[in-house]
Design a protein around this nucleic acid. Structure first.
Lengths: 208, 208, 208, 208
DNA sequence: TATGAATGAGCTTTCATTCAT
DNA sequence: AATGAATGAAAGCTCATTCAT
C-alpha cells in the first residue's frame, strides 16, 4: 500500500518525464535542432501527447528556463543576508552552479548554451532575467566595494563580468567537454580556485 | 576616368559583400535561423547567387569561422615571442578581442554565440580549433607559472578558464547588449581592469 | 451497419492509395518529372503525408520496382518446373506481361519506360534485377537448346534478345499508345502471334 | 595554306562540337539529368555559349533527334525500291542500326533510351516520327505478305512489333551494357541471327 | 563571339502543430 | 489521456535561361 503515491502516471509525473526528456534532447541538439519527436521518443510517449502538457515547443523551453531561474533566484534570496560576507555570497553562487551541474547537468548546459550565449533564443523576456541575474550579482559587489571589501578602482560592473565570466568558463568547459564532477572534493577545489584568484589575483607572491 | 577603381563589382567584392551580409544576419538570428534568403536580401543580390560564391550554407558558415580563427591565431603567432612578458601576451589577447569587437562586431558576436557556447554547431573540427585556442592560452600561463610570474598553487587550466572567462564575459555582454565601444580610452580601461584584477585580485588593499 | 468494412482509411489503404497515385503520375511524367506534389494531389492527400508512408521519392520508386520484380520472379519460380515445355515457360512470360498490362498498366508502363530502357534511372542494384530477368530467360532457352527443342545455331543470348524484344515491343507500343487490351481473346491472339513467329518464323509456308 | 579551312572554330565546327558533347552527356545522364553546364564542359566552352548555337535545351535535344530520324528515313528511302526483296529491306534496317551503333553509339543510345521508350520526353511531334518509322516498317511487311513472302495469318502490325522488338532489344542491350561491336564479322552474325530467326523461327529442325 | 555572373522558379524534404479517433 | 495520421509552411539547393561586359 502506497497511499501517498496511488498512481504511477499522474499528470505531475508525465509533465516531469517530458520535462527531463526535453532537457536531455535540447542539451544534446540545441533548442532549434531538438524535434518534438525526439523529445517524445526520449520520454517514451507519443509526440502528440507533448501538446497535452505543454502548449508549444516554446512553452516547453520557457518551462525549462523558468525552472533554472527560479532555483537560482531562490538561492540568491536565501543567501543575501546582511550577516553574510561578500566571499560567502559569491561563494554561494559558485556552489550553486557546481551543485546544479552535478545534479542536473542538462539544465546547466542549456543555461550556458541556449541562454547565456545565444542571441537566437534571447527574446526580450528571456534577456531580462539574465540581466537581472547580472544586476543582482553586481549589487553584491557594489555593496562590498562600499564596505571596502573589494577594490573600488575597477567599476563594479567590470568586477561582475570578471567574476561571472570566470565561473561560467569553468562550467561551460565542463559542459562542452562533458566532464563529470568528481565529488565534493573537486567542487571545493574549483570553488577555492575561483574565489582565491578572483579575490587575490593570479600573480605569484614571489613575483611581486 | 577612374583609373584606380575600374570595376565596382568584381568577384572579390561580391564574395565580401555576401560574407558581410551573412555575418550580419547570422549575428542577428543565429546560424540555424538565418535563411539564405535573408542573407541574399541583406547583400541585395538574388537568392541563387549566394550559391555561386559559396557551396552551401555550411560552407559560408565555415568561411566566417575560418576568418575569425585565422586572425586570432595569426595574432597569437606574432605575439608569442620570448621577449614578451606574460602580461603582454595575455594583454594582446584582450586587445585583439576588443579591437575586433570594435571593427567587426558581427564576427565577434558569432564567435561568442555560435562557437564559444553552442553545442549544436560544434562539429568536431570546429571544436578542435576552440580547444587549440584554449591550449595555446594555457601554454602561456604554464610558462609564466614556471617562471614564477603566476601563482603555482592553482592549476594552469583553472587560471586559463578564469582569464578567458573574464574576457569572454566582457565581450559577450557587450555583444548581447549591443554596447558600442567608445574609443581607445574605453578599450584601455577594460583591458587594464581585466589584467589588473586577474593578476592582483579583486580584494581591496585596505581590506587586507 | 458495416460489419465487414469497419474502417475505410486504414494505414494499408493509404499506402496503397499513394502507391497507385505514384504509379499513375510516374507513368505520365516519368520518374524525374513526377513531383511529390503531383502524387499527393493524385492521391488527394497533402504532400507531407507522402513522407509519412515513404521515406523519400527514391524510396517510393523502389517500392514500385520491388512490386514489379517480386511479381515477375514469383511467376517465373512457379512456372519453372521440369514438366513444363519451353513453349509453356516462355508463354507464361508473355501471359504475365499481358495480364499485368491489363490489370496494372501503370506498373508495366513504368517497367518499360523507366527500367527496361532508361539509363538515367538505372542504378546498379536496379540494373542487377534486370540482368537477372534476362539471365533467367536465357536459362530457359539454353535448356531448350540442349533438349533440341530450339535451334542451336544461334546463340542462346541472341534468341533471348529476339524473344524478349518482340514481347517488349508489343507491350511498349501498347503502353506508349495507351492501347487497351480487349479481353482474353486479344491476349490469346497476341500470345499466339509472338510464340508462333518466334518458334516457326515469319516466312510464309508458300514462299519457301 | 588551307584556303578552304581558314579558321578552326567556324560556326559549323562549334555547332558540331556542342552537338557531340550533348550526345555524350545525354547518353550518360539522360536528357533531364543532363545539365547545360555538363554539356558545355564536355564541349570545353562556356555554358552561355550553348545558347548562341541552340535556342534552348529542348532545341538541342530536338536537333539530336532530327539527326537520327533524318538519317534513318533517308536510308529507308534509298532502300525502298521495288527490286529489293523483303529480306533485303528489313536487313537494311538491321544494318543501319548496327552501323550507327558502331559509328555513333551515343545517338543510338539516345534513340533507344530517350525516344523509343520514354514517355516523359515524348511530346506529340516526337511521337509522330516514331509512329512513322513503325508504319513504314509495317508497309514493307504488308507488301511482303501480299506477295506471299511473309505469312499472312499474323497481323502485319504484330510481325512489325516482333521484328523491331528483336532488333531493338539487341541494340539496347548492347547500349545498356556498353558492349562494343567487334568489326563487320559480329555485325553480320547478329544480322543473320535476327533475320534467320525472324524469318524461319527459333524451333529446331530436329524438334519438328 | 564568348564569358560566367546573375536571376528566381521549382523541387525535395522537414517538422511544429492540429485533430479525428 | 493518448495516439499518430494529416497538414502545409518553410528552408536548402539546383539549374535553365538571361544579360552585361
Amino acid at each position: 500500500m502506497q497511499p501517498t503515491q496511488p498512481a504511477a502516471n499522474t499528470k505531475k509525473d508525465r509533465t516531469a518525464i517530458i520535462f527531463e526528456a526535453a532537457c536531455a534532447v535540447i542539451r544534446e541538439k540545441g533548442f532549434h535542432q531538438a524535434r518534438i519527436r525526439d523529445i517524445a521518443a526520449a520520454a517514451k510517449i507519443s509526440y502528440g501527447l507533448v501538446y497535452h502538457y505543454f502548449k508549444s515547443k516554446a512553452d516547453l523551453f520557457d518551462a525549462i528556463l523558468g525552472e533554472w531561474w527560479t532555483g537560482l533566484f531562490a538561492m540568491m534570496d536565501r543567501s543575501n543576508m546582511p550577516s553574510q560576507s561578500v566571499e560567502q555570497k559569491l561563494g554561494d553562487i559558485v556552489k550553486y552552479f557546481l551543485d546544479q551541474y552535478e545534479q542536473r547537468p542538462d539544465l546547466v548546459h542549456i543555461f550556458i548554451t541556449e541562454i547565456s550565449r545565444s542571441a537566437a533564443n534571447l527574446t526580450p523576456p528571456r534577456l531580462d532575467r539574465f540581466k537581472m541575474f547580472m544586476n543582482r550579482t553586481e549589487e553584491i559587489i557594489t555593496e562590498a566595494q562600499g564596505a571596502k571589501n573589494l577594490r573600488g578602482d575597477v567599476k563594479a560592473r567590470y568586477l561582475t563580468y570578471i567574476f561571472l565570466g570566470a565561473l561560467e568558463c569553468f562550467v561551460s568547459t565542463m559542459v562542452l567537454e562533458n566532464q563529470p564532477l568528481k565529488g565534493q572534493g573537486q567542487k571545493d577545489r574549483i570553488e577555492r580556485g575561483i574565489m582565491e584568484v578572483f579575490l587575490n589575483g593570479a600573480r605569484s607572491e614571489v613575483g611581486q
